[in-house]
C-alpha cells in the first residue's frame, strides 16, 4: 500500500475539443481505454476517488469492474464547471494530503512510480512534463526545480501536466483552473513525469505513437 492515501482522478468533463461524444477517460488508445492505463498506477493507493459527470453511468460501470472500491464523486454541473470545481467536490472533506490526476492522461509507469515515491516525503509537488505543444500551461522553474510561475507564454521547456500531490493546499470550487489555486502557494516543488494529455485529435494521434514507448509490463 502506498503512503499516499488519496488519489483523485477527474473524469467529469465533456471532452468537447476531442469531439468523440465519449467521456475522454473511456476513449480507446491502442486497444485500451485511457482510464485503463491510469488505474494500475493508483492500484496501491487506498482511497481512489473518481469524479464523474459526462456519461457518468458508463464511466462508473467500467471503473468499478476494475476497481470495485473506487468512490465516485458526482459532478452533475460538469457542463458548466471547471476541473477545479470537480477537484473541490472530491477533496473538500479530506484533511490529509492527496494526489490529483487528470483523467485524460497516459503516464509512463516508471515515472509515475518515482513521483509517488517522491511524494512520500510529504511536501506538495507539481507534476511537470517536457513541453509538447504551444498551447500548454508552462512552468517557470528555479535552479532547485521549484515552480516559480505558471504562464501561457512564452513557451518554456516544461509544462504543467495535471498531476499534483497536495499537502495543505485547497482547490477552491470557484477557481477557473487548478493551476490558479496552485499559483497562490508558489514556489512549489516540481517532479518530472513522462506523459501525454489527450485534449484534441492531434493529442490522440500523439498518444497513439507515444504509448508504444512506455513500459506497462509492471504497472
Amino acid at each position: 500500500m502506498s503512503r499516499v492515501r488519496y488519489a483523485i482522478v477527474s473524469c467529469a468533463g465533456l471532452g468537447s475539443r476531442l469531439g468523440l461524444n465519449s467521456a475522454k477517460c473511456l476513449v480507446h488508445v491502442e486497444g485500451k481505454r485511457i482510464i485503463d492505463y491510469l488505474l494500475p498506477l493508483v492500484a496501491d493507493i487506498e482511497d481512489l476517488r473518481v469524479v464523474v459527470g459526462f456519461q457518468e453511468a458508463e464511466v462508473m460501470e467500467h471503473v468499478s469492474k476494475i476497481r470495485p472500491d473506487a468512490v465516485f464523486v458526482r459532478n452533475p454541473s460538469y457542463a458548466s464547471t471547471s476541473n477545479s470545481y470537480s477537484v473541490n467536490l472530491a477533496t473538500h472533506d479530506l484533511h490529509e494530503p492527496f494526489m490529483i490526476i487528470d483523467g485524460d492522461m497516459i503516464i509512463e509507469p516508471a515515472s509515475f512510480r518515482r513521483f509517488l515515491l517522491a511524494a512520500e516525503c510529504g511536501e506538495s509537488m507539481v507534476g511537470v512534463a517536457r513541453s509538447k505543444t504551444d498551447e500548454a500551461v508552462f512552468v517557470k522553474l528555479d535552479e532547485s526545480g521549484y515552480v516559480q510561475q505558471f504562464h501561457r507564454s512564452p513557451r518554456a521547456p516544461f509544462e504543467w501536466c495535471g498531476v499534483a500531490y497536495l499537502a495543505g493546499i485547497r482547490i477552491e470550487r470557484s477557481s477557473k483552473f487548478v493551476f490558479d489555486d496552485l499559483s497562490r502557494y508558489l514556489p512549489l516543488k516540481s517532479h518530472e513525469l513522462e506523459c501525454v494529455e489527450i485534449d484534441t485529435p492531434d493529442d490522440l494521434k500523439m498518444a497513439q505513437r507515444e504509448v508504444h514507448k512506455y513500459n506497462f509490463s509492471y504497472a
Binding site: 487506498e46 476517488r49 468499478s64 472500491d69 468512490v71 464523486v73 458526482r74 467536490l89
Partner: peptide
C-alpha cells in the same frame, strides 16, 4: 441522480 457519491462495495463506502 440525488447522490453526491456512488460506491459499489462496503470498502468504498467506508472510505
Amino acid at each position: 441522480r440525488l447522490a453526491h457519491y456512488v460506491v459499489y462495495n462496503g470498502s468504498g463506502l467506508c472510505h
